[in-house]
Amino acid sequence: MVKKNIHRIYMFLVFIFLYAPIAVLVIYSFNDSTSRGNWGGFTFKWYIELFQDRDIKSALYYTVLVAFFAASISTIIGTLSAIGLYNLKKGPRAIFMNLNYLPVVNPDIVTGLSLMILYLSVNMKLGFLSMLLSHITFDIPYVILAVLPKLKSMNKHLAEAALDLGATPSYALRKVIIPEIMPGIITGFLIAFTLSIDDFVISFFTTGSGVTNLSIVIYSMARRGVKPTINALSTLMLLAVLILLFLINKKSSLTNRDNKFDGGY
């Protein structure tokens, strides 16, 4: 009994440690006082102020735009890459999979810096396009990681069955393979979108004047002194990411159930 309580208290402390900062941030975004020490009553005014700030509005626009295009393009490239990887022989596949993992574990700052140096070395102007390209680059491996398991759990004769029935390879891809791995593709898109929305380091290195995303705006605002609008903005970003995470989890728990069913017959 005592042991059980100790376990509970320990768990409670861990969660406090993890979530207290976020809770504080959210609570203070509703605080009607500029000083962080006192509670001046409940207010939405920071949120209202947020949406009157032109810089923030433009950053929101770019964030969503980049996230949408980066997620879409990387989903297409990543899905096709995953199909290619899946059809490779075991040896080469292992090599390419490890090459694929490298960007995932590579520190963001290294990725960001190396992309920046690459763009500068080919005389590319840093701005919207360079940031978009960077986001596509770091999104692709995650899409591949989301799609590949769906391919592996698919009956390996499905594509052959389509060809056997007279389908050209591209018809088989469109009508059989893609619909079959759709849950993985959607999950990959959502992961890419989420990563793109909350990226700071890589965006910071690869964007140019006039084009910023929300993370960069928050960073520069924080340097000038923490205003409660930052809390409000961060809370909104947190909310957006939470919703996306929720969608991803729902999606993947659905597909897990499908997989179990596949194994049934």
Binding site: H157, A161, D164
Partner: peptide
Amino acid sequence: PPHKRQINTVFQKYALFPH
């Protein structure tokens, strides 16, 4: 290639299209 042969196959685990 298989799609140009007048031959059809019934696969070991049927390979029906689940979608």
